[in-house]
Design a protein around this nucleic acid. Sequence first.
RNA 1: GGGUCGCUAGCUCAGCGGUAGAGCACUCGGCUUUUAACCGAUUGGUCCUGAGUUCGAAUCUCAGGCGACCCA
Length: 510
Amino acid sequence: MSELRETRLEKARTLAALGQGPYALRFEPSHSTAELQAAHADLPKGEERDLSVAIAGRVMTRRVMGKLAFFTLADQSGPIQLYLEKATLDAASPDSPPPGAFAHLTSLVDAGDLIGVEGSLRRTDRGELSVKVKSWSMLSKSLQPLPDKWHGLADVEKRYRQRYLDLIVSPHTRETFRRRALAVSAMRRWLDERDFLEIETPVLQSQPGGADARPFETHHNTLDLPLTLRIATELHLKRLVVGGFERVYELGRIFRNEGVSTRHNPEFTSVEVYQAYADYTDMMELTEQLIAHVCQQVCGTTAISYQGTAIDLTPPWRRATMHALVQDATGLDFTTFSTREQAAAAMESQGLVAPALADSVGRLLVEAFEQRVEESLIQPTFVLDYPVENSPLARAHRSKPGMVERFELFIVGRETANAFSELIDPVDQRQRLEAQQERKAAGDLEAQGVDEDFLQALEVGMPPTGGLGIGIDRLVMLLTDSPSIRDVIAFPLLRPEQRAETRPEQGGEG
RNA sequence: GGGUCGCUAGCUCAGCGGUAGAGCACUCGGCUUUUAACCGAUUGGUCCUGAGUUCGAAUCUCAGGCGACCCA
């Protein structure tokens, strides 16, 4: 409450009068708490090491008992105990005005404050390595109380809205974002070492493309130009391959104007990788090597556990065609259907739904896959060979009519990566995009349009190329055992909270 | 878009028609080996918002807001 805040403001004023900020310019720690814990693990109970260390961090808990006090101070690396003795502190700071350095420390420092301390090391009789403090300084006064020290922040909404509090009190949350950073940097390093160049492509585009999704719309004022945020990086990265970059990638933010769920956030991160003179079988190898490497770097193993299920990411991974998987699960062999009606009737006989929007045998095959197979693919599985109708940017299969050379990677029942032997024939590509355009005109909001500039690039000649996209957020969910995508996005999209002061004035009736 | 559940003190929660509660945090007092410190005292509320039912609503009803989960 504001009374609590007022109390802390008063303490801040008192600190200022004592020459203690309360918002310091800088402090130079000599160690992190984890370094101290590691370096002095051998210090026996009740003994001291008379060296001088300086550490900075946030006061997490306070235990004051008369002329002795224990604080827990946490920096990024973790906690350490402060051993605060009145006699030691007062003797080391004789110039401190009454009632003395110890009293100032215990009465003006609250849980949540950032302080710096200098002192020696001591392991207490109870075995806790502690900094025996000789002097201290206020680095930043907190005006807000910390969440419950025992229960932490249990309210998920508060954890997302006030992620800073979640990070302060939840080591698990900190570890999740540390792992995310490790995963992203391991991925970049792996690609860089193999001569892939990361090249940034536009987020603002006049024509969205490269995926089936609804874009966010915006506007450029000076050019008076309607623009959309990118829904994929595909079409620009391919232009770069046309331009002669044989190995390119981009790891960055993608925006899709769709719903929010445990697996979807309107802005998310993908990496797309393109390798000239390669096909989708090369991309399968690249995918399993890359993801296994990242997993090894982040988790120290490729045999992990996700929500209680053991997942083995050690290559090689299972490969199966969509046809075979659907046949195993439903008994239906989609290669034998020549008309949509035939396929739909067969599906319905097996209790599957054949929606009207799925207007071809191929689209029904995908429907059957989604209804009966997808969620059962727990261990990493490459699902091969998709119908051409659903894959306007993938090249026709070398031996299977009506299919394209495409795979999606499924892990724990979720699509985690998507790759093609890229379509490089500009005439075929134009027909495919025009078919998309027709669907769009017929009301399919997610269908793609015809990107003339991209088609012109293809006409200049694009080498045979393998392309791959990986959903970083879903991969990080797997590597951090997180059940929701919001657990791996520091600031997930939420509706703005309606605050009292921003509420509209109560006026006339509705 | 549909369904279920939730929203009460700074935090974690109880209360489920009859004076708004507990633990922690805060404030004050005590305490030199604590680590959810302890002991004692105090303080703290738009019970998410609005309307309705009722002698009386945190509690029941309706509408709305925000969120979680499931489904599409």
